[in-house]
Amino acid sequence: MAAVKRFPKAPAHPERVCWGCDLYCPAKSMRCGNGSDRTQHPAELFGDDWDQWGLEAEAASPPPPPPLADANTF
Rank of each mutant, 00 (worst) to 15 (best):
K9N: 04
W50A: 10
D37M: 14
P63R: 01
C21F: 11
L55C: 02
V17K: 03
A3K: 12
T39E: 02
F7E: 02
R6E: 05
D48E: 09
A27I: 15
C18L: 07
D51H: 14
C21S: 11
G35D: 04
P67H: 04
A12T: 11
S36W: 04
P42K: 00
C18Q: 02
P11R: 02
N72K: 12
K9G: 02
D49V: 11
P64Y: 00
H13C: 12
S36I: 15
A71P: 15
N34Q: 08
Q52K: 15
A57F: 00
Q52A: 14
A2S: 08
T73A: 14
W53N: 05
A3I: 10
C32K: 10
N72M: 01
C32E: 03
V17E: 01
K5E: 01
T73W: 06
R31A: 14
E44K: 06
A10W: 07
L68K: 09
R31W: 13
D22Q: 14
A57E: 04
E56C: 04
D51Q: 13
P64D: 02
A71T: 03
P26F: 03
T39P: 01
L45F: 02
V17G: 05
K5F: 00
K9I: 11
G47E: 03
E56S: 09
S29N: 10
G35V: 10
L68H: 03
A2K: 13
P14L: 07
P65Y: 00
R38Y: 03
L68V: 12
P42D: 01
D51N: 12
S36E: 05
A71K: 07
D51A: 15
F74D: 07
Q40L: 15
P42Q: 03
A2F: 09
W19E: 01
S36N: 12
P26I: 07
C18M: 06
K28H: 08
D48W: 08
N72T: 14
L45C: 01
T73R: 10
H13M: 11
C32P: 04
G54C: 03
C21L: 03
N34G: 13
L55Y: 05
C25Y: 06
E44S: 07
M30R: 15
A27T: 11
D22E: 14
G54Y: 05
S29L: 13
F74Q: 09
P62D: 07
S29W: 07
A57H: 00
L45V: 15
E15G: 14
T73D: 14
L55P: 02
C21I: 13
K9T: 12
T39H: 08
C32I: 05
T73G: 11
P64K: 00
G20S: 08
R6C: 06
P62K: 01
G20R: 09
E58Q: 09
E44D: 04
P64A: 11
V4S: 10
R38H: 08
F7Y: 12
A3Q: 01
P67D: 06
